[in-house]
Design a protein around this nucleic acid. Structure first.
Length: 594
RNA sequence: GCGCCAAUAGCUCAGCUGGAUAGAGCAACGGUUUUCUAAACCGUCGGUCUCAGGUUCGAAUCCUGAUUGGCGUACCA
């Protein structure tokens, strides 16, 4: 779905260069951009590259090209050349036609299926503690990227690889065994994931105490960490788990079920979901056959101690262990196996891992190994790496309690939304449940937008002492704009089949709004290609801002002529639809009133 | 040590494959409501785009080097 006027402009510009200067202008030499506000026109051709062929000054070249285009393209009504910029004014008729024939159509911004299948793996939590703000970023990013790619035409599978086993899980289990006194979510009133997280923290405290004691008795830091009785007991429990010990397995199942119940609630509030769950307890032994495959192919090699390695020094990386000397797996062994499993399950063309940038090196190695193994699907793998969410005090650490808890934060956001909304007093007539629903919507909108408007790659600073804004470049501003439009539409008894007559002339704010709305498909495309919800988030803001400008400059319901009134209603409705659709892809709902 | 990533207004961020005088929001100050929702709109203030070279008609954007910050460099995950 490309902008045809731009294609036409490129075509005619190339033709102009051919006829006027007897030269072939390569595609990549034609730059078309939107005209800056301070100049006359809507689209601009940068003529500097063309002067190489015209051998004339930029102004002359621009004017010659402009004259040529003016003669071929009826929708081009005026042009001016300033410095090396050829500014083009398209007729109001052109913009009106763009509006009617594209923006107003039901399938606007919906890409047809492209026949490709893609998996987005995200969330991938550990089952030993509740989710925090960093996980929220991951979940929102994954969900939104999946939605955007679906809108772009992919068949998308959302996958969650749950880290449900390992030493960290045993830590919570052991602590609960020792100090839990049979406590359950029911008996304590605690959400399951929080209950388990509590014991994870208890373990860590006891562990630290033992380390300190050992160090006081002359142990080195390293030895103390290794020798502390409690960690040895946890390791023993892990071995029992692997051996299938009935008691340990039963406890593991029980505590994990508490965590899952808690996660389900958090996921529900976040509005994220999954098509496929993978559990590490099922996949942790995978990958060993791939190790053998790599040995057979000579991609891996075995050292004297029987450990298996790959030499990546020729690729600027290091030697990397892929299987321990005792034959047990390391992290990357599992990931090799799981990558194969996912492909065997779904045969997708592309696979995206939404994982923090602390694992950049790991994924670089993982993908490189799969390529060296000759997996044809390896080229479709992509690590969507995002920056950590930091506090002013530094990194969040679960064990030290310096985390912004996901559930608490959502509660706070909703509570703030309630206060703000009540202050404004616009909710008369809404039932209590409608009001609560609205607070939820606005609070979550503020939080989600705050996290998604930043490019994934950039690290994010969150100051718990500074509340997330509800004004300006925020989710609630966009939600408000939508509600405002809906209010006008209701007062104007708007319906889609309202007679659509386009007025003879458009105001600047109408034209700008149409042009902006017209970009929506291109924004979806860019956001999809770059896996960047931030681009879409910023676009939604632009659209809302441009609408508010239009709203203030023009009268809608009391417009002099019916044609103008109807047109402005249609334009408002189209803006509302675009905003709602774009926000939907960010996982943000917009209200009918607020 | 080596590797990866980031650095734009007091703060939080945009800035597309190099293009015009680098844009928003917040904060500060001023204005706009007898008219469709003021969570809005308009204006003022605020920048050696970390620094130094280089490529180019043209660099916040590309290249090289430095500085600062983050992350990684485990027979942890």
């Amino acid at each position: 779905m490309t902008n045809t006027i731009q294609q036409q402009l490129i075509h005619y510009t190339q033709q102009a260069v051919k006829e006027l200067y007897q030269s072939d202008l390569p595609d990549n030499q034609v730059t078309i951009q939107e005209t800056r506000k301070e100049f006359e026109g809507q689209l601009t051709i940068v003529v500097f590259p063309i002067t190489r062929f015209s051998k004339k000054p930029p102004e002359v070249t621009g004017t010659e090209i402009g004259t040529y285009l003016r003669g071929r393209m009826p929708e081009l009504v005026a042009f001016n050349t300033i410095k090396g910029f050829l500014n083009l004014s398209l007729s109001d008729g052109y913009w009106a036609n763009l509006f009617n024939s594209q923006i107003m159509q039901g399938d606007f911004g919906v890409f047809p299926p492209n026949g490709r299948k893609l998996m987005v793996e995200y969330s991938s939590p550990n089952t030993n503690k509740p989710l925090h703000l960093g996980h929220i970023r991951n979940n929102l990013l994954g969900y939104s990227v999946a939605s955007i790619l679906k809108a772009y035409g992919y068949a998308v599978i959302k996958a969650n690889l749950v880290n449900d086993r390992g030493i960290h899980i045993c830590k919570s289990m052991l602590a609960w065994q020792r100090w839990g006194n049979g406590e359950t979510p029911e008996s304590s009133g605690l959400k399951g994931d929080h209950l388990v997280g509590k014991y994870y923290v208890l373990f860590d405290k006891a562990y630290k105490r033992e380390i300190d004691e050992l160090k006081a008795n002359g142990y080195s830091e390293e030895d103390a960490k290794r020798q502390a009785p409690i960690i040895r007991e946890a390791q023993q429990m892990l071995q029992q788990w692997e051996a299938g010990d009935a008691v340990v397995i039963a406890l593991w199942k029980t505590m994990n079920s508490w965590v899952y119940a808690g996660f389900e609630r958090t996921y529900g509030r976040l509005g994220v979901d999954f098509d496929k769950y993978y559990y590490e307890s099922d996949t942790y032994l995978l990958g060993k056959d791939i190790i053998q495959e790599g040995l057979d192919k000579g991609v891996f090699f075995r050292k004297e101690d029987n450990s298996v390695w790959i030499d990546l020094t020729a690729d600027g990386l290091d030697e990397k262990l892929v299987l321990r000397g005792d034959g047990t797996s390391v992290y990357i062994t599992q990931d090799l196996g799981t990558a194969q499993l996912k492909y065997d399950d779904f045969g997708m063309d592309e696979s995206i891992y939404v994982v923090g940038n602390e694992q950049d090196y790991h994924f670089k190695v993982l993908f490189l190994i799969l390529k060296k193994l000759g997996k044809p699907w390896a080229s479709g793998l992509f690590h969507l790496s995002y920056g950590m969410v930091d506090l002013p005090s530094g990194k969040m650490k679960s064990r030290e309690g310096t985390v912004v808890d996901a559930d608490d934060l959502m509660d706070e956001m909703v509570a703030t939304a309630k206060i703000r909304t009540e202050e404004l007093g616009k909710t008369e007539g809404l039932s209590v449940s409608e009001k609560n629903h609205l607070y939820q919507l606005i609070g979550m909108g503020a939080l989600k937008y705050f996290l998604l408007k930043v490019e994934p790659k950039k690290r994010l600073l969150f100051d718990p002492n500074e509340s997330i804004d509800f004004q300006g470049h925020t989710g609630p501003f966009i939600q408000y704009t939508h509600a405002r439009i809906k209010s006008v539409l209701a007062k104007g008894n708007y319906s889609l089949d309202l007679l659509a007559v386009v007025p003879d002339t458009l105001s600047a704010s109408e034209r700008d709004l149409i042009q902006l709305l017209g970009n929506y498909p291109a924004v979806i495309e860019a956001a999809a290609k770059e896996f960047s919800p931030a681009q879409l988030a910023n676009y939604c803001y632009e659209a809302a801002k441009q609408y508010n400008k239009f709203y203030h400059e023009e009268t809608i319901l009391k417009a002099e002529k019916d044609a103008v009134r109807n047109f402005r209603l249609h334009l408002s409705a189209a803006t509302a639809r675009t905003i709602a659709a774009g926000m939907e892809l960010l996982g943000i709902k917009v209200p009918e009133r607020m």
